[in-house]
Design a protein around this nucleic acid. Structure first.
Lengths: 237, 237
DNA sequence: ACAAAAGTGTTCGTCTTACACCCATGC
DNA sequence: GCATGGGTGTAAGACGAACACTTTTGT
């Protein structure tokens, strides 16, 4: 069969955190053409000789570019078009976009390979379109919308939620992500009904000015609804 | 910058319909290696010289392989791994999977290019794993789960739902997709509350044995929640 | 005692479910 | 009239929002 030129295949990572109670996305300053000096999601090219799967590629990119394997990398979508990336044949670029959440205090993101400058951009105060590289503006918005939908449904992927927390802390975190206040009683009843959290026996906040709060942790995190990414391959004929 | 070998990039289409009130997926018999004589989703290689976008590529593949542009092609997910496809470097294959629904009576799918045999396989009675090519078994299941989730939420993509229908017909269609009975009154109240359908003035079934039923059509179909696939590209620096 | 935050009830309205009932038509 | 499917109403329960209330601690 004929072999056709293939698009440039990349993985991009929309890493999100809370800064000053604002949902933010990590962007990296591009040091090279195309889109030099504009801001882009951290990403990298799929390496057929090094990456066993797309998911593994995302982990490698996370490690190399961000210095950490970010928790619960999840595939968001794939985009691809002619004109997306001049480095591909016919400027054809495909990007598989991943999303990850991280706690703001666990980001000693020193900048990895070829990363000179980075910044956290609030999703509700995006940069101007002409400061963003590629079609990443829409990818950022897409990732933010999905994260908010998950938090609205109280589907907590590990990452942003600390290992231990008080219920008020968890509520504040949700309110920051969603950008709206929640009712304490309703919030707790939902958590209880769905058994999303469990108290750590005997654990209470200490050294706090007023009444100590019980400390909780997440129960087992169910896998997201549609996880299909290939790792194991059936033998072929 | 160095140029790395790129994976084989393909688009696959999970085309679904109802046959005998069973949700089915179209599979094509592979006439060539790899996986010769096994059943696979119809698909094709992304052609950088012909396809402006991934979505357009899916449309071209639909046209060439199935003879029709299937309605409301929607991206489902992307999979990629070494070992997925021996035709790629390091056997690396990426597939962007699309999903589409079609009415069973509008399938003069004659089989397009390189299509000798095809069959509709009920999602609830899948073929044995060793009769399916690649990792398509899980993609089929994934597509079916999403379609059912959409019908549960009464999110009707055009395609499976006829242009005109009675409410009972629409309900039967949902019941077939979901594989469970629905309550007539509740079903209609939801449709009304969300303004999903509107009656065609003066239109009633004719020649029917008993009381004629009002004929409805779908109201405007909202775009799905997360549509981001790139078409327009911002100018680059 | 008081302030501040933790934690619990209670009410009210809305949506869902299950089921019953009426209506229109051809035979 | 009556069988059959079209179409509507209703009571019971589940769920969620809003709000008030009680409890516990440090000062």
């Amino acid at each position: 069969m004929p072999i056709y030129p293939m698009p440039l295949v990349r993985v991009e990572i929309a890493l999100q955190t809370l800064i000053d109670s604002q949902l933010c996305t990590l962007l990296i300053r591009r040091e090279e053409a195309p889109y030099k000096d504009r801001w882009a999601l951290p990403g990298g090219v799929v390496r057929v000789d090094r990456d066993p799967t797309l998911d593994a590629c995302a982990e490698r990119v996370s490690r190399e570019r961000l210095g950490v394997i970010t928790p619960s990398l999840r595939q968001l979508c794939a985009v691809g078009a002619s004109g997306r990336d001049p480095r591909g044949p016919s400027e054809w670029g495909v990007s598989i976009v991943y999303r990850s959440l991280i706690q703001s205090d666990s980001l000693p993101i020193e900048g990895g390979k070829r990363v000179k400058g980075f910044r956290w951009v609030p999703v509700d105060q995006p940069l101007r379109d002409d400061q963003i590289a590629f079609d990443h503006q829409r990818l950022i918005a897409h990732a933010a919308a999905l994260t908010r939908a998950e938090f609205t449904a109280l589907e907590f992927l590990p990452g942003l939620v600390p290992r231990q927390f008080t219920l008020t802390e968890l509520q504040s975190l949700c309110e920051a992500v969603l950008g709206e206040r929640l009712d304490k009683s309703s919030f707790r009843r939902k958590l209880a009904a769905r058994e999303l959290v469990k108290p750590i026996p005997g654990a209470f906040t200490q050294g706090v000015r007023y009444r100590p709060a019980a400390v909780y942790e997440l129960t087992v995190n169910r896998e997201p609804l549609h996880a299909v990414n290939a790792t194991a391959i059936t033998p072929r004929a």
